[in-house]
């Protein structure tokens, strides 16, 4: 052994730590964008206007039918040709958020259809508007129903941040690659990256389990 793992942690630890923080921020930002897109698309699918429904259908169809990597390239490399230049971080967050949003929309749609129509009826009959009903009666119930599915989607979004290594975001994967090209130790560093992802996804799952137990008391 010409190196010690303890020494590695001291030398590379801070760098991995910084890259992990970046992954965390990328994920949180992506999730926020994806929930906004997903909720908008799910509600748009129920709109009275056919054009609004059409836009939502197209969005979901396009995103689910094309690779995430190509979507990222379109936004980061493609949009500048049309005069819109985004930083790697913003392009990455938008691309992944828009991507994940299409799946979130499908999850929310399934959740909405699981709510008995009497829930809306009783709310309308009391005088609540459609928006008030959605916000205070329907969506809180949908959230509880979709929690497991939405957790899986968040985990996918987290793992997909590794794709952003291709557009120069120095997240875990790209950071590891730069180390590997200097040290020729691909096994060690890719395993390190895998372990960090495992820690992050496990944390996310634990958080979701805790929320689910919290809500389970109610029904």
């Amino acid at each position: 052994m010409n190196h010690s793992y303890f020494n590695d942690v001291v030398v590379y630890g801070p760098g991995f730590m910084a890259a992990s923080w970046l992954v965390l921020w990328l994920t949180i930002s992506t999730i926020i964008v994806s929930w906004i897109c997903g909720l908008a698309a799910a509600l748009a699918q129920r709109s009275d206007w056919i054009a609004v429904r059409g836009v939502a259908e197209f969005y979901i169809w396009f995103i689910r039918g094309t690779p995430a990597l190509i979507q990222i390239f379109i936004i980061y490399f493609g949009l500048p040709q049309l005069g819109l230049r985004l930083s790697p971080f913003s392009a990455g967050v938008f691309a992944l958020g828009i991507n994940s949003g299409a799946y979130v929309a499908e999850i929310i749609r399934a959740g909405l259809s699981a709510i008995h129509k009497g829930q809306m009826e009783s709310s309308f009959a009391l005088g609540f508007s459609r928006a008030q009903t959605m916000r205070t009666i329907i969506l809180p119930q949908v959230l509880r129903i979709i929690l497991p599915a939405i957790t899986n989607e968040a985990i996918s979004a987290l793992k997909n941040t590794s794709l952003l290594s291709t557009i120069t975001v120095v997240e875990l994967t790209l950071y590891a690659q730069t180390l590997i090209s200097a040290t020729f130790r691909p096994f060690d560093f890719y395993i390190a990256v895998a372990l960090i992802y495992l820690a992050l996804t496990t944390m996310l799952t634990q958080l979701a389990n805790w929320l689910e137990r919290h809500y389970a008391r109610m029904s």
Partner: peptide, 8 residues
Amino acid sequence: QSFNLWPH
């Protein structure tokens, strides 16, 4: 007929 209380 269905009570439609809000379960949450």
